[in-house]
Design a protein around this nucleic acid. Structure first.
Lengths: 189, 189, 189, 189
DNA sequence: AATGAATGAGAATTCATTCAT
DNA sequence: CATGAATGAATTCTCATTCAT
């Protein structure tokens, strides 16, 4: 199907360029060029430039679900479990990374994007709480569990956000250890 | 001194507008208008638009120094100390907030800005390590101390970064408690 | 007949939209949308956009004929007769109104449309002269009759033209009275 | 003053082109070209295209005032007076004609323009009533005077409007005679 | 006969930057 | 020193029209 193919190529190009140069700094013409389609086609599929971004978020940024934890959580090893979850979340994946990068940068200026970010944070906190629950062998106080989860999520988001800055990345592994310690478990082996 | 005054007004206006609307989305003409100076004057003082941003970072974003800790660290209360430090850092202050917002957003696109962000993160980690050192009554392993500090810094940056998104803010207080627990101290009272 | 039906729907939609928004400001895509037909079909039936307009004029703008006067002219009452003729002409009718609106607006830019307007004016003058002839009980000088007719036609056209402006409409009834007086008859009762 | 001069040239060019081709059909680029100024300058003076039109109406379409009648009304000759008034109104003048042409065409689509047209009609009716008053040697009933004035105004507007159609023009002179007859005076000599 | 994907030539508008005064 | 008029390259978006299927 040539049509679907070209639409996909446009999204691919937009994803890449928005992540590298930023949404505002990327002319639609460059998206078209990178996708090797005529300029008009971009607007045929995405009438406004912002629709490119919105479509990326809707089609390519699935909210993490409980399934994400299947096979990654190891009872008795909260630090390792958090780290494994982080990897599974694919914040290292090109796709996810790029999209998360985009959301961070544009969330201040585009309301629709902001909602996605809020939603993402909430899902991640829930997921991390569940992971802690499953990994820890004793009961953790609700408040502490929430605080621990939020802390780890902040680190993950800061990590994703910092990647594009190119500097040193926050140490997710270290954070996993810290959080694990806080909930009473020993750090990473 | 009228000249210095007008230059200051330009920077004030730029700071505000860049924070609210973003650097790219703010025309220099609007900066001039907000500063109530003629458009030409902006370019007289800041030949290129990017110089406005760079000057803001250089003149208004002082690296946090050890002095920051004076009077905020309470021995025996690491969680409280971290929280106090966070407040003192003034990430709540208008000035700091605005500038940090700017660095986050622009760091991906403007290399000069990126360097500032890197530098900021490094200073903050050092500062947090020092705070932990002073607040904790026993010795914390170097690695753990560093991990704990980085974790807290991530949360502070994520917090600053999230403000403009307008959603729920990460819980800095909770993170302070988590980090304190991790280094062996009880959480916040 | 599905085919004829769809063609009709296209013309209906075009008529409405051209009248409301103007010919230039109405994209063919919107015509297709309003007609609930695929965009390609519009160009299938009307290869160039202007053909939509031309077809409307040809098929839906019948020249007024002498028949128009049947039953509306009352001997001895020129003012009433002119008014009745005006009503019968259906410049109040949706169809006529819309189309006349279109011709006025587009006649300056589209030569083909201009010819229709010229033709319309001529027919109307002839018709009005005939109406006066039949309504007036004495003989009116040729020149005066022509002048009276032209005056009334101007008022009718100005009236049709003014409708879309939405402001006060010229007073056709008053004009009928004036014209009747001019040819020697008393005004409207 | 070069600046004022260039602004004027832009308005001159816009006036001419809008009248000939219509507002919508005239690209600002063509206005710039005709005015022999760079494209950017047009937008410097008139930020939106519609501002060109609005400025034209505001600066170049003076409402007719009572002064218009000075020296044109001849007591005892209403028909001649109306005709003289029509000439004095300069609906033949390039400026007026062009602008009136524009208002007619655009009044349907641009609300701001519509108001100008309404205003113009009202002023003209008042003026014509005054002219009749001064020219007629006896008293004319108020209603009749108003009807006569409105009739003549319709003809004048229809005349202005018809010019761009290029066809036969309505006969203003004839209308003046008709109206004069209606108010009891003999037609044109 | 019908269609919707595709195209590219403009269109309006924005804006950093220059520069004469 | 200061300024505001001037510029033109760049950008988003529109749309009539074509055409393969």
């Amino acid at each position: 199907m040539a049509a679907a193919d070209r639409r996909t190529r446009i999204l691919d190009a937009a994803e890449e360029l928005f992540a590298v140069d930023g949404f505002d700094a990327t002319p639609t013409a460059r998206v078209a060029e990178a996708a090797k389609v005529p300029k008009g086609l971009v607007f045929y599929y995405f009438p406004r430039k912002i629709d490119l971004l919105l479509t990326l978020l809707q089609e390519r940024l699935p909210s993490p679900t409980k399934d994400t934890l299947a096979g990654v959580v190891r009872r008795g090893d909260p630090a390792g479990s958090l780290l494994a979850m982080h990897r599974r979340l694919g914040l290292e994946d090109h796709d996810s990374l790029v999209l998360r990068t985009i959301i961070f940068r544009e969330s201040g200026t585009h309301p629709e994007v902001r909602d996605h970010l809020r939603q993402l944070r909430r899902s991640l906190v829930e997921l991390t709480e569940a992971a802690l629950d499953q990994a820890v062998e004793w009961t953790v106080a609700k408040t502490l569990r929430r605080q621990a989860a939020e802390t780890f999520v902040s680190v993950m988001l800061d990590h994703a956000n910092a990647r594009r800055a190119g500097g040193e990345l926050p140490d997710v592994q270290g954070a996993a250890a810290v959080v694990a310690l806080a909930v009473g478990a020993p750090g990473l082996a």
